[in-house]
Amino acid sequence: MSRVVVDIANLSKRYSLSHQHRPDSLKAWLRSLARRAASGKQPVDEEFWALRDVSLQIRQGECLALVGKNGSGKSTLLKILSRIIPPTSGHIKVSGRIASMLEVGTGFHPELTGRENVFLNGAMLGCPERKLRGRLDAIVDFSGVERFLDTPVKHYSSGMYVRLAYSIAAHVDADILVIDEVLAVGDSDFQERCILSIESLRQRGTTILFVSHNTDLVRRLATHVATLTQGRLDGGVLPGVARHESREPTHQ
């Protein structure tokens, strides 16, 4: 067995439905303070658990698909793992560098050229400029935007935009790649190339965690499948259909 790189333990995330703990203006905040002072008790809160007591482990080289209906907590889990929102309780231990792609082309600036955006976006994904320079050819090659590399991305077609964005994330050398439903974009030709690139990343030891509603994609890519139901992971993690051909790391 390869080593555990993502260890999720009893993770929960609570949202409160009333706005009293989350005043959205100074006025609402003052009003809630006054109300609390007058009644002398904490307001009763309606709460909603987006995740409840989720535990799971992902080992190096695995490709875990998170599936479940809308609102089952998949994205919440990815967001906590990507450090965008904090958990209410529980914790995640991560070893290695995470690169998250929760959206295509986060941080792309329309006025910047493709090339400039590669460096900006790459840095946001935690990859230093020096390393990106070495990867630039591969990134451009994969995305196929070569002719437009020095054109501001505001002039890109949506396909070019997506291809460049995915290409950057695939080349930043993360230990763990987190992908939220972004493989659904792009034409079938590009999707096919994404699938192949994810396969090859995984075989090189990258751990992948992705969310998808596309059962076909899950069948092809996932070595493991976790199904979330209303924020719970009752069924645990089941083996996926994709061949688990990753090998043990060679370190002693």
Binding site: V5, G61, R83, P87, I92, K93, S95, P249
Partner: peptide, 15 residues
């Protein structure tokens, strides 16, 4: 290819 050892960076996400 042999699997690279993940970088030793440890991260604890606990809020």
């Amino acid at each position: 290819p042999t699997m690279p050892k993940p970088s030793d960076r440890m991260l604890l996400i606990d809020g």
